[in-house]
Structure formats: structure tokens, C-alpha cells
Design a protein around this nucleic acid. Structure first.
Lengths: 192, 192, 192, 192
DNA sequence: TATGAATGAGCGTTCATTCAT
DNA sequence: CATGAATGAACGCTCATTCAT
């Protein structure tokens, strides 16, 4: 693992543990096992880590989705698996998600964020296009906007549950997943 | 306007202009025209402003929704007006929305946030319950989860547009609103 | 003594002891008995102390000259006393003189330096004008340029001796003073 | 040009442009096109460059004087040419002069400076001795102190003009040169 | 000789917080 | 209630210096 990757991994860990604001660069370099100055060879500031972290998260998310969704299942099952995957990633990494969102907001270079998120949008978009072709879902909206609405709905639903960092919320999570799936199926015009 | 309100208003302004992280309490008190020490008579820290700011935003949002939605319209029109109102508030205040979200994430007292947002959830929930009673929308989900999904979907759709602080994106916004409304109508099982 | 004056006095002391470059702001505030942050209430940086210090040095020099020169003496004696005073100030404060010169060179606002030095130039200029009126010295040069040449010659002569921070150089200093006085007397056309 | 010379030339350039204090070794090696570590093969520190730079300046100055002074001219003309040369070098390199002076002040090894400047002192001293032998100037002072006073007076006169980095000061410079020459002639007892 | 990635001590600077007025 | 000068802990950051290649 390169020094740059070590820094990103360490930052993700520490950010998750104690929050972005309370994390110092000193914390990160200590955990990464490198010298203070070495950090600045790779990143000019704490916030400039965000795009790199976001990229990791997007990869992780996309990988989780791809690993969870069984392409031989029915569309409804695949959608259920998708929701499951998104909720799962949010459960594990909700602090990082919030962090990225906040870092995103305080960045000037917003343009690059769209590029970072593109892989997920594209994957969903392809699934949508295919399902439309097969007549599994409604055909009166283009795939791209649908993809963005789907990921937006699912992630906000997951955040509503997992932002509140508590235990024993399984039943609430299960219900929320069910309702989200139902809303998605209706929203996509899947005949029930 | 009381000193407390002046502080909150000033903070909203400065936070919006230069970001939460880069805003100092000194900035806020200068803009508010009060002394450094006076701040601490009302708020113990910078982040403790967030709930107060969120409250203002929730009030503003709810007021915009109530003002925009004409209760004598059809359900479909009311939903359209709702989407319109949410997009509008997001357009005007997207920095503050992001800021609250980020501030929210770094707060320990997450519980209170649900209380802060309750008024909006309740208003939507009532509308949903009423529409279900009148048979205007599907009846196989309870109103509360539906309300949260609706606001989550609509706000995330708005953010996808307005986070990218640019001009002349009207056509994109119009399409996004249309698709969001369509998805909501399908999602709520409104017969078309 | 105000906090600002305490800072300037402490800085002069420490600068003299260990040089400007090796002096830290931390050194200054420790010696001044104030907090680290307090320094920045009065000066934005270490180098911004220079004009304030130069002002003190100019006052000190002018005072030394005024105190040493006996206005009832002959012109030749007064010139001798003047040289004596300049050499004495340079002996005591040669590090600060060098320091000011260096600080001066790295300042952008060079204009203000002329203002700082003006009092000394004026005093000498007046003496010259008076001596010219009384026919004691040559009359074919205006007082102002003469004043600048006199102070320039005398200070550079003193620096040549005292920059080399050593002891037991009295004989060298005495000779240098004699030669400087002689050169001044010739240079001013004092009949011998 | 050897690597050592490249370093010295680069340092002179960068020091002049942004000041000694704000110049980093990194700046110098970048401009010199060498690696960070290579610097330390030739110089142990930033300040240790000063003598080498001073040497270059002394050579430049002496060369300018030798080139300008026409040994077949009268003493008065030669003195005028000398003043002209010193002013010219100061005009071109006043930042470096100030820099050397400042670097000189913060060096511990002051002794070596006398050696560095010796060539100029010697050249002037020889001229003085010769003029004394020929009865062109007064004979009641040894050549060495006179030489130091002459260079001190002339350089300080030049600095008074050129430290103030401005344009269109030609008339001021011309007058200053005239007065300096006149003072030198009187000071050296040249019969007029 | 030459390199340049890595170092880490130590600096300037900030800014939330206090408290005598 | 209100002030704002003073605080000082703690942070980001620099940059001279080293050393394995």
C-alpha cells in the first residue's frame, strides 16, 4: 500500500472514530505511522482528503452492490438486494457518508464530485435501461434521472435510520427497508 | 429582534458565506454587533448554534410548503406544489441545508434532531393520512414512513441539482422536478 | 509602560542578545511577561516590530547627541562631541542598528523610514545652517545634503569598528574617531 | 559554471527577488536545477552563502571601479569616476548590498568579512598613498583609515538614494553625487 | 557525486474561552 | 446583562537536514 493510500485509510478510520472536526492531522499521521511533514507531500490540507475518501466510499458501495445483487434473480429481488446493500454500507459507514457530504459542501471544486459518483449512477442506470427494455418497469422516464432518484431515495432512507447511532434498531431498519422497497417498486411502475 | 435571534441570523449569514469550519465566533459577533463575551451568554459553542439554525430552517421550509400548497387543489397538484416548494427552499438555502446536515453529523445530541424535524414530518403525514382516507393514494403503507420517504426523495432530488451552485440550470431543475413528481405519484400509487 | 511598549522593549533586548533571526516571538512574550496571543493584538509579525524599534533608536540617538553636544563649545568641539555620541550609541546598540538596517531592507514600506529618521537629519541640518551663517564652515553646499553625508560618514565609521563585537578595541576606536573628526572638519571646510 | 557557482548565482537572484528571510533552500535548489541534498555538498546552511555572495559583490564592485577609473586622469576626475562607479553598483545591486549587510550582522564569523572586503580597501588605499606621495591630497592621515572613510561615505551616500527603490530619481542622484564628490575633495584636502 | 522522499522538531498563528470592569 | 482585552493550549505547517539509493 502506497503512503498516499495509508494516509487515506488512516484518515477514514480516525474520522469515523472521532469526527472530522475533532480529528487533527497529527492524529492521522500518528495512526498512519508517518512523519508530520510527509502528509503534506500528498495532501495540502485535511479537507483535501475528502475526494480521495469519497472515491474509496464509492468504490466500496459499488462493490457491495455488485456483490449483493444476483443478476439471475427477478427484478424485484434484485431491487431488494440493492436496498439491502445500500442500507448495509450506510450502517457500516454512516459517519463517513455524513463526513463526505459535509466535506463536499465546504469544497469549492464541486464539479469533481459528480465525476466521483458517476460509477454508481452508471451502474444503476444500466440496470434501469435493461429492465425497461425487458418491459419489467415503466418506460416513461429516461434511465439517468431514475437512477439518481433511486439512489437518492434509498440513501436518504438509510440515513434516516443509521444517522442515529444506536443499537437494537433492527426492527426499525427492517420496516424502513420494506417500505423503501415498496416505494421503489411502485415508483418504477413494477406491476405487483 | 432579541440578541439571541441576532446571533442566529448572523451565524446563518456568515456560515453560508464562508462555511462553518472557517467561520469563527469572532466573525459572528462582529457581524452581530455584540461583544465577544456576549455570545457565551446565549450559546456555549459554535456547534450549539446548529439546532437553533435548523429550527429556523424547518420553520422556513414548513411555511414555504404551507404557503405554496393550495388545499383546494387536487392531490396531484398539491404534490406538484409541494415539490415546487421544497426545490425552492433548497435553491435559496442549499448551503445552510448542507451545513445543518454536517453540523448534525458532528453533534452528539442526535436525538433532538428528530424533534426539530418533527413538524415537517407531521404535516406531510397528515396530508398522506387524509389522502389515504379519501382513497386518493395507496393504502398499504402507514403514513409516517411514507412521509419520511417523500421528504427524503424530494430533498435529495433538489440537492442533486442545487448543490452545484450554478446559474442557468433552470431546464435541468424543471426536468428533475417533473421526474420527481412522476416518481412520487407512482410511488404513492396514484392512479394515472 | 503600556503593553505595546513592553513588547518593543523586550524585543530590543532579545534581538540584541541572540539576533533577529534566532529570536522567536515566544522568546519575546516570555520576556515581556505576556501571553502568546497578546503579541498579535499589537503586532502582526516579528518584522513589523522594526519601525517601532527604529523609532526608539532614533530617539535614543538624537537624545544622546543632544545630551553630549554642549552648545556653548566651539564648532570643532561640538563636532567632536557629535562623533563621540554617535560612536557611543553604535557601541551600545550596534546589533540593533544592523538589525534595523536589515529589517528596513526587507520592508516594503520604505517610505516611512525617511520619516523615522527625519528628526536626526533635521537636528544636524539646523546645526549646519547655523554654522554656515556664522561663517564657521564652508557655504557652498546646502545644509540638508551635508547633514546626510555627515551622519552617513560617522555611522559607517562607527560600524566599521563596532560591528566586530570585540573587546579591547579602544585604541582602534580612538584612532577611528580622530580620523573621522579630521575628515569631517576638512570635509566641511573648517579652517584649521 | 560549476555547481557551486550555480548555487551562488541562484541564491543571489532569489534573495534579491524575495528577501533572504523568505527564501528557502528549496527555492534556491529549484532555481539552480539541482537536488535538495546537493546543496549540502557545497554549503552547510543558508547563511553560509553570504561570504560567497559577498565575494562576488566585492569582485563586481572592484571591477567596476577599475573599469571606470581612468588612471591617466587628474585625481579629481578619478575621484569623480570612483563615486560614479560606486553609485552605479549600488543602483544595480542595492538589494544584495543590504542583504549582505544583514547576513553579515547575523553571522558569527565576522572576522572573515574583513578579508572579503580587503581587496577594495587595498585598491583605494594604494590610490591614496600614491596621491599623498604626489602631494595631491593632504598627508596628515594614514592611507588605510582614509580608504575606509572614503568607501564608507560614498556607499552610505549611494544607499541613501537607492534604497528607495524608485524611478526618476536621477536628478536627486546627480546632486547627491556632486555633494559627495565635493565632500570627499574637501575631506581629502584637495586644493581647489 | 548526485538524488529527492522522508523526516520531525519547532515555529507562527489562531481562536474559543474567561473575567475584571 | 454586556463588555473586550487578555489568555494560552493546541493546531497547521514549514523547511533545514538526512540517507538509502
Amino acid at each position: 500500500m502506497s503512503k498516499k493510500e495509508v494516509i487515506v485509510q488512516s484518515a477514514m478510520r480516525i474520522f469515523t472514530e472521532k469526527g472530522v472536526e475533532k480529528t487533527t492531522i497529527s492524529d492521522i499521521v500518528k495512526h498512519a505511522g508517518i512523519a508530520q511533514g510527509t502528509f503534506y507531500l500528498y495532501f495540502p490540507s485535511k479537507l483535501s482528503l475528502m475526494p480521495a475518501i469519497a472515491e474509496v466510499m464509492v468504490k466500496t458501495t459499488l462493490q457491495a452492490v455488485i456483490d449483493t445483487v444476483d443478476q439471475s434473480s427477478s427484478f424485484q429481488d434484485r431491487l431488494r438486494q440493492f436496498v439491502e446493500a445500500i442500507f448495509d454500507v450506510n450502517r457500516k459507514y454512516h459517519e463517513i457518508q455524513a463526513m463526505i457530504y459535509s466535506g463536499l459542501a465546504s469544497t469549492e471544486h464541486l464539479k469533481e464530485w459528480e465525476a466521483v459518483y458517476a460509477p454508481i449512477y452508471e451502474w444503476i442506470s444500466q440496470q434501469i435501461a435493461q429492465a425497461q427494455n425487458e418491459g419489467l418497469i415503466r418506460n416513461d422516464s429516461p434511465p439517468d434521472p431514475l437512477a439518481k432518484l433511486i439512489i437518492g431515495l434509498t440513501e436518504s432512507a438509510a440515513e434516516q435510520i443509521y444517522l442515529y447511532d444506536e443499537i437494537g434498531q433492527d426492527s426499525r431498519a427492517i420496516k424502513q427497508k420494506e417500505e423503501t422497497l415498496k416505494f421503489l417498486l411502485y415508483g418504477l411502475g413494477v406491476p405487483s
